[in-house]
Design a protein around this nucleic acid. Structure first.
Lengths: 197, 197, 197, 197
DNA sequence: CATGAATGAGACTTCATTCAT
DNA sequence: TATGAATGAAGTCTCATTCAT
């Protein structure tokens, strides 16, 4: 029945809004993007915007959440595939994971910037409630524990590694100071290895 | 002559503007502070603002620069004092330096937030041109080299450490996720030590 | 046949719309009630609203008309019952009538407000075309004439009394200034009596 | 100095806004007047509006207050002049006062409508705090007391008279139903006299 | 008849910037 | 220099109404 068509239409509208907003947010910044830009670019009426989001920042949060989950999800998938195919050990898995993200964000520094600049407590909490991520983190932690550290320590070290990698990525890829990512990479891997060991 | 007094007056106005803006930026965020708030709080007329700054973000940059330099300067001074008084080794100096900043920002998370959220390429470059910081960094690097690494490697490791400490500080002190700074601190110091070694 | 059921359904929808709108109009004011509120509260679709009313103010008029007629009708009924049961004289009838309305609106000031604030020429005319009210007024007038005044004078005095009672009610019950209705009541009755005499 | 000119300018702007708004409010109704109409009609920029009022209803309140005070003030002045010139008694003063207002609003029914439709508790309170009105009311009350009633009773009767006159005025002049003011006037005066006596 | 997603005109409000004094 | 009233472009958000299903 027609219900199907309507739902399809709604999905299309939402997608158009998300895509348009994503492009504008990453190209011009959230602050410099106005709702008029978004709806014009999406080809919908202004009122339609408010059927799908409370305001600009609500839309931004949703986009960041969606994109982050997508990136992390594909990274985790890639790690898992590599691990089973090539029987990677824990350190190799971590290195591969970091490598994957570095490569990804190298080609999409704008997304990294969007996420990094707009991460808030609330957004972080929401992100952590994504079950897929949770399972990945647990896998990470349990592998870590196998190396002989206790659970809490493993969690702290993971946190430190993630913070470090994120910050280096952001500085080198987005701010582009003071060193290019490729130059720092060997030392970054060494640091990770040192922390894990 | 009166010239002196006029200059004194101007300096006072500028100071009032800076102080008012700093309080508002850190309390309510840069985005939520309008120029009217600043001039009202500073007790000067709106037009006066434009005699001293190009716009809100120009003022913000100047404030961040000034405050950052002040914090880093006092940290470096403290390290130097401690070093000569207690004959600290390199690792101890680094630990003391990090400790100083952690303590400082624990009591002033708002400044950390202001700096972190608004750091740009341009601002970073300007900050690096402060000679005082430069000399400190050089001292750091040369100490580092004494441990046996080459100059470039030392610079990369310093960069990684600074990024890591900054990110952990920001996450734990400003976003307050996922762990409190005091809980992570031992592992953070261990990570620094591992990277230095 | 199903025709019956359809009509029943329509009546139910209309009733739901009226009831929902009445509650919202009296709780939040007509101005602050939007059509979305009404249809949501009534549990019907937005388009349905336009099958039953031209717009918000059309619905308001209908509601005011219906409610006013109901209140006046029950007041008149009560007077008539009292009159035949206790053989009330003219002045007593008037006092009883006013008393009835005062009591009624004391418990439903919101309705009084709705009526008073939105009474227009058109609405007044429509209200006067309700035959029940007409017959009541005629009874009133003829009783009045029996006291010795001519028809036109009776009508003027009735008009003055109604205006006076309405205004005092509105001020004391809705605006609640400057005096409470119970305090003024004795003087109000005295005034009515003086005008009738 | 130039200060004078600036103040003069401000006063002119305020006056232009008030006058434009008054004309629009009375011609088209408050609801149908938008801020754009007001500023266009006043020949000022939209932002200027917000230098002088919080919003449309704030401006309305101020206008009602100002106009009401002006009308009541001139009525009171006229009564006083008449009283001293022709040695009017209390009843004659009341009649003259009512007559004055009736005449005034006959030529300016729009103002009466504006006041009546938008009178609120808050506005009423503010109006009562105008000292000029207060002194007039006190004169009225004390004259009333001279006729032998106690203070509270005098106040109640005054309140009833004001309500009655106001309602009859409004109905007859604004709604124009059911009788013209000139036809009802004799009975209205009789009613006042009866209440006073 | 009933639905509710979509529309877009239009209302309100803010605020960086200017400029006459 | 210093002032602060005035500006008006630019933004946010609402909501009555339509119409395809």
């Amino acid at each position: 029945m027609g219900n199907e068509k309507i739902l399809e239409n709604k999905r299309a509208k939402r997608t158009k809004l998300y895509d348009a907003a994503y492009d504008l947010f990453t190209s011009n910044g959230v602050h410099n993007t106005v709702i008029d830009d978004i709806v014009k670019s999406a080809g919908v009426a202004k009122g339609t915007f408010y059927l799908y989001c409370k305001d600009k920042y609500d839309l931004m949060d949703k986009i960041i959440l969606k994109k982050s989950a997508a990136v992390l999800g594909s990274a985790m998938e890639a790690v898992e595939k590599e691990r089973t195919e090539h029987l990677l050990g824990f350190q190799q898995c971590v290195a591969f994971f970091v490598d994957y993200l570095l490569d990804y964000f190298k080609d999409d520094t704008k997304l990294l910037e969007l996420i990094y600049k707009n991460l808030t407590y609330e957004l972080y909490e929401k992100m952590m409630n994504y079950e897929e991520l949770d399972s990945a983190r647990n896998a990470f932690i349990s592998n870590f524990i196998d190396t002989g550290v206790n659970n809490q320590t493993a969690r702290y070290r993971l946190y430190i590694i993630v913070s470090m990698v994120g910050a280096v990525c952001y500085n080198s890829l987005v701010l582009k100071v003071p060193y290019q990512i490729d130059a720092v990479k060997p030392e970054l891997y060494r640091a990770i290895k040192q922390i894990i060991t």
